[in-house]
Nucleic acid binder design. Structure first.
Length: 218
DNA sequence: GGCCAGGTGTAAA
DNA sequence: TTTACACATGGC
């Protein structure tokens, strides 16, 4: 919580996860939530910049739509999301995702499932981070999202080992923080913001790609 | 030109 | 169970 407070006072509220190019505070629509899911898959090991372009292409073609995604031709979808990298894999992932959700009828129904996280993880192409991003940012339920930034920064802060296991670090946050999806949303966004910034000095960071970022808030 | 980006699935050791 | 590798584009 101390780190959170430092980050928050340094960077302020992030209002995270851009929907259709802007930061929304209001209640998410079904389409908003679907866009978040699609974004979560497209951003796998990929910069958000590239994902934004792909999302824009999908919007233009009215493809933020489960039924359309479920049956679109592979080649067409691949072309639209090409700029986000791994486009053949991701096209397949999006289709499988849409087809799976449709079995429940809607995202709303799917999100209401008791064991939502396991359901998500059983979908091909959805791993722990993608599943948790969807739960936190689309379903708005409190799970803490761990990503490469979080691991790196926390190990810099001496809170974990560099190669810490995903769930081990997630448990750390779950035990320390109150279960509040807005807090988790903000916290994860602050980590990403920190990682994007630059700074002067940190002990032990000579080879860290984000060495310039961390010291500022320490 | 090399490294990194809001990872995941698969197959070999 | 752990490790290595494929997947692919764009920015710096």
């Amino acid at each position: 919580m101390q780190i959170y407070n430092k980050l928050f006072s340094a960077f302020g509220p992030q209002g995270w996860w851009p929907i259709n190019g802007e930061y929304k505070q209001r209640k998410l629509s079904e389409k908003d939530r679907l866009e978040v899911c699609i974004g979560a898959i497209l951003t796998q090991n990929t910069s958000w910049k590239n994902v934004e372009k792909a999302l824009e292409n999908l919007h233009k073609n009215e493809l933020i739509d489960l039924k359309k995604l479920a049956k679109i031709q592979d080649e067409k979808l691949e072309k639209l999301i090409q700029c986000s990298g791994y486009y053949r894999q991701k096209a397949k992932k999006l289709k499988i995702f849409a087809q799976t959700i449709l079995k429940s009828g809607s995202l709303k129904n799917f999100f209401a499932k008791e064991n939502l996280r396991d359901e998500l993880l059983s979908i091909w192409g959805v791993g722990p981070e993608t599943a948790d991003s969807i739960i936190l940012y689309a379903a708005e339920k409190p799970v803490f999202v761990i990503d490469a930034y979080t691991k790196r920064i926390m190990s810099r802060f001496g809170k974990c080992k560099p190669g810490v296991d995903y769930h081990e670090l997630q448990d750390y946050f779950h035990k320390k923080l109150e279960r509040n999806h807005k807090l988790f949303n903000e916290y994860h966004a602050l980590f990403v913001e920190l990682a994007k910034r630059s700074c002067k000095k940190v002990p032990d960071c000579s080879s860290c790609p984000i060495k310039k970022s961390c010291q500022k808030v320490l």
